[in-house]
Every structure is written in C-alpha cells, then in structure tokens.
Computed example of a mutant assay.
Amino acid sequence: MLKFKFLLWMLTQLLQRQIKTNPDCARYVAGKDLVFQIRTEAGVGRTFFLRDGAIRSVAGLVDQPRFTFSFKDAGTGFATLSAKDSQGAFLRALGNQDLVIHGDFLEVMWFQRLTAFLQPPKKPSPYERTAF
C-alpha cells in the first residue's frame, strides 16, 4: 500500500519537473483545467489538480473528478503504473478488469499523452543510419 501511495505522490513530482523544465510539456498543459484521481477499489488514492499550467495533488478523493483510474488493489496499481512496458501493462490491466476507468475518455487520452513526457528519450538503435 505504501509503495502505491508513494508512486502516486512521485507522479506529481515528476510531472511538476517536466512542466518546469520541458517547454513542450509546459505548452501541452497550458490552459488545461482538470481534476482526476487514481485509486484502489477500497478507496485509497490521490486526487490530481491541473490548473494554470501547474499540477498538484492531495491524498484522498473528491466527489466529481473528470475521470478516475480505479485499480483492483494497491499492488496491482503499483505494478501497472511502474511497469517498464507501461502501455502494455495498462492494456493488460484493463483487459483483466484489474483497472476500471470511469469518466471522460477524451480527458483520459489527454492524460495518456501527458504521461508520455515522463518516458526517457528513445535511444537510437545502433542499426539506424545517422545523418552526417
């Protein structure tokens, strides 16, 4: 449970850093007003607020977020959110119904693109040609 809570807190920190240091990320969130939450079925979770080009979060849940990711349990949430193959893990969790999404799917898609800013830059393959 603690690892899940810590991971959600860290998500806020990592997104804050990207917004401050990555101009593309800052442009992506500019003007966005969004409240969402990531939680377990048991009700443990965190609410995220995106407003005025900044993100913050608080422990606990609100009544009417724009969308909610609800994991079966904290272990499943941690494993899914911290997986190296994040997109595959996310899709498997949805397929197994270990993750249920409620709310505005357009906002979910927007959030998925936001999390792409957290991925490390792709290293070129040694087999790719480079321009001289």
Rank of each mutant, 00 (worst) to 15 (best):
K32R: 15
A89E: 08
K123P: 00
F48V: 00
A59P: 12
V108A: 09
R51H: 15
R66I: 06
G103K: 09
S70I: 09
R17H: 10
P124V: 07
E41F: 04
L99F: 02
V35L: 09
G60S: 12
A26Y: 00
R92P: 04
M1K: 08
L50Q: 07
Q13Y: 01
G31K: 08
D33N: 13
L61P: 11
S57G: 14
Q97R: 14
L15K: 08
P23I: 00
C25Y: 00
L81S: 07
Q18N: 09
K3T: 05
A59D: 14
E128N: 11
E41V: 04
T80F: 02
N96Y: 05
P126I: 13
A79E: 11
F90S: 07
R27V: 04
L118H: 12
N96C: 03
L91I: 12
R39I: 01
N22V: 09
T40Q: 08
L15R: 06
K5N: 10
Q13R: 12
V58F: 12
R46A: 10
Y127C: 05
L81T: 10
A74M: 08
K20V: 00
K3G: 01
P121Q: 12
P121C: 07
P124H: 06
V108T: 11
P65T: 01
A26T: 06
Q16S: 08
F117T: 15
A83K: 05
Y127L: 14
G43D: 07
V58I: 14
W110C: 07
T21D: 05
F111S: 13
D52F: 04
D33F: 10
P126A: 10
L99D: 00
Q119Y: 06
A116D: 14
V29S: 06
F105E: 08
F117N: 10
L8Y: 02
K122Q: 11
F78Y: 15
A26V: 01
C25I: 04
L11R: 02
K20P: 00
K32Q: 13
F67G: 00
S86E: 03
T115E: 13
K123M: 11
C25L: 07
A74Y: 03
Q16A: 05
A89V: 07
L94N: 01
N96M: 05
T76F: 00
T68V: 13
D24Q: 14
M109H: 10
Q18R: 15
A54F: 03
P65F: 02
N22W: 00
L50I: 15
K122M: 11
F132M: 06
F90G: 07
A79L: 07
G45N: 02
G103W: 05
A30Y: 07
F49D: 01
L99K: 00
K3P: 00
D52A: 15
A26M: 03
L50Y: 05
K123A: 14
V100A: 05
G75W: 05
A83S: 15
F105T: 14
P126E: 07
A74S: 15
L118Q: 13
P121V: 13
S57H: 05
T40S: 12
F67T: 01
G77M: 05
T68G: 04
F71L: 06
R27A: 15
N96S: 08
F78A: 03
L2A: 13
G60H: 11
G88H: 09
L2V: 09
G43M: 11
D73C: 10
L94Q: 03
K32F: 03
M109L: 12
V29T: 11
Q112G: 12
A89M: 04
